Computed example of a mutant assay.
Amino acid sequence: MTSSALHNIAVASNPDSFTHIRYNYDPITEYNNPDLFPSMFPTLFPLGIGGFEDSGRNPSVSLEFHAKHLLDSADRSFRYHYFYIFVVLNLIQRRKAHLHTSLSIKSSRFATIAPALIAVNPDVLNTLANNIRDEFNPSLFTPEEKNALLLLKEVNTISSKVPGSQASKVYARHEIRSYFSHFGLPTLFFTFNTSATHSPIFQVIFGNDDIDLDSDHPALPSTRSDRARNVAKDPVAGADFFEFMRICLFQDLFGWDFKAGKSFASGGIFGKIRAHYGSAE
């Protein structure tokens, strides 16, 4: 980082250079690189330390847990940053895709397909992937690429543990149908959609100390646009508000004991709940 700073100073001191964008042909690794995020977001890591997956940190902390900790820290710079949340979420999604994506083959074809798939040259797969990305005419593929393409048509991609994937949605449907088989058809369907814009609780989570929740009618910020800007400014507070309201709904109204994983002995407004299932968009 010091050498980069000195290089930038040297470039800036050149009167003939107004704009200089540095680049390199070799991509920077995103795995086990504690300097990555301090270099990408110097305003969030002004000392150049505190990046993810630092091998010298004891005990070790995963990227996902560390990123969540930074979003929940007292310093709200991370949650207010325009790009940090999107970049770290993209990184987490990519890693889950790398870790949980696998291939399956019909058992009747396994003995034939598995050895042939293993024997395919990785360079052929790489070239084939580039050709498909660039929408090359399949008739121009080499015989090795055509064979690899035929093999890939014999396998199915499994990514049920990757959030947001089509396979994860199918997995959720299977879970719901399993609930039907065990508990019977559900008694109640509903969409839980709380309005953070009009909630004094959200304003408190956001950090507005002027809200008096002990009052019967807490005074909200004067205009709806001001309240909406607070929601847009702090999406983490919006997520915390949704989670808080969800727990309150099931615990205080429906009488569900999250620690025990069952309904309270006294039940709730609908009596005792045997089970429930929900998914977040």
Results as ranks from 00 to 15, higher is better:
Leu188His: 11
Val162Asn: 00
Ala111Lys: 15
Phe110Lys: 11
Ala116Phe: 01
Phe244Arg: 00
Ser160Ile: 07
His81Gly: 02
Pro200Lys: 02
Pro218Thr: 11
Gly238His: 13
Gly207Arg: 09
Asp216Gln: 04
Asp210Tyr: 13
Gly267Glu: 11
Ala97Ser: 14
Thr112Met: 06
Phe192Ile: 07
His182Ala: 09
Pro218Gly: 12
Phe180Pro: 07
Arg229His: 09
Asp216Leu: 09
Glu243His: 08
Asn230Cys: 11
Thr187Trp: 14
Asn90Ala: 08
Ile158Ala: 04
Tyr277Trp: 14
Ala129Tyr: 11
Phe206Ser: 05
Pro34Cys: 04
Ser13Leu: 13
Ala237Asp: 05
Ser263Asp: 07
Glu145Thr: 04
Pro221Cys: 02
Tyr84Glu: 03
Tyr31Glu: 05
Pro42Asn: 14
Arg79Asp: 00
Phe242Gly: 01
Glu135Arg: 11
Ala280Asp: 12
Ile211Pro: 03
Tyr80Leu: 12
Ala228Met: 13
Thr187Phe: 13
Asp54His: 11
Asn24Cys: 07
Ser263Asn: 04
Glu144Val: 04
Ser266Pro: 05
Arg133Asp: 11
Lys96Tyr: 05
His198Met: 12
Thr197Gly: 02
Arg76Leu: 14
Glu30Phe: 03
Glu243Asn: 09
Ala172Lys: 04
Arg94Pro: 03
Tyr82Ala: 15
Val155Trp: 03
His69Tyr: 07
Ile132Glu: 03
Arg173Pro: 00
Ala196Gln: 05
Lys272Met: 05
Gly48Thr: 02
Glu154Met: 10
Ala12Val: 11
Lys146Gly: 09
Thr187Glu: 15
Ala196Cys: 00
Val87Trp: 10
Ile205Leu: 14
Asp210His: 11
Phe45Lys: 03
Arg224Glu: 07
Ser62Phe: 05
Met245Ser: 14
Phe250Ala: 02
Ser139Val: 10
Leu140Lys: 10
Met245Gln: 10
Gln203Cys: 05
Ala12Lys: 15
Ser104Gly: 07
Lys161Asn: 08
Phe202Val: 05
Phe18Gly: 06
His81Glu: 03
Ser102Asn: 13
Ala114Cys: 04
Asp252Phe: 08
Asn90Val: 00
Ala10Asp: 12
Val236Pro: 05
Arg133Gln: 12
Ile205Lys: 02
Ser104Phe: 10
Val11Gly: 03
Asp257Phe: 11
Ser160Glu: 10
His98Trp: 09
Leu36Asn: 01
Asn32Arg: 15
Ser62Val: 01
Glu64Arg: 12
Tyr179Ile: 12
Phe110Ala: 15
Ala260Asn: 01
